[in-house]
């Protein structure tokens, strides 16, 4: 793995760990790496769609903040609750056409996973 790819991985893992947007200037300080290398790596990451960068004004200063874009793998965990992909989600509610207290799929998921989780 080349040095630039390693640096990109390092930046991505830092951003995912932090969870909140970070000013671009802070990243180089946090990783203790030359800021020029960091800004080039960030430009590559932004081009590939792995991060997003936006300008914000803080105390009159214009800052470039960076935050990671969720990957499909992170979004791919969405079927973990059956309701997320259920076509009747918007018609579901207590006393409605589809009832979460009577839903077989939800009950099965709850019983199966609560047993496994214990």
């Amino acid at each position: 793995m080349s040095r630039s790819v390693l640096l990109e991985e390092q930046i991505l893992s830092l951003l995912r760990k932090m969870r909140t947007p970070i000013p671009q200037s802070q990243i180089a300080k946090m990783l203790n790496i030359d800021s020029r290398l960091v800004s080039r790596a960030l430009a590559r990451l932004a081009r590939s769609g792995k991060i997003r960068r936006n300008y914000v004004t803080l105390n009159g200063k214009r800052l470039l903040v960076v935050y990671p874009v969720k990957t499909v793998e992170e979004y791919a965990d969405i079927p973990y609750i059956p309701c997320l992909l259920c076509p009747n989600l918007n018609k579901c509610g207590i006393g409605q056409e589809f009832d979460p207290t009577k839903c077989e799929k939800l009950t099965h998921w709850l019983i199966h996973n609560s047993e496994r989780g214990s």
């Binding site: 918007n90 979460p100 939800l106």
Partner: peptide, 16 residues
């Protein structure tokens, strides 16, 4: 849309 659906699922899980 995914965020909206997650918000709706949250309501359903709270009801359950």
């Amino acid at each position: 849309l995914i965020r909206r659906r997650k918000r709706r699922v949250l309501e359903i899980l709270k009801q359950r």
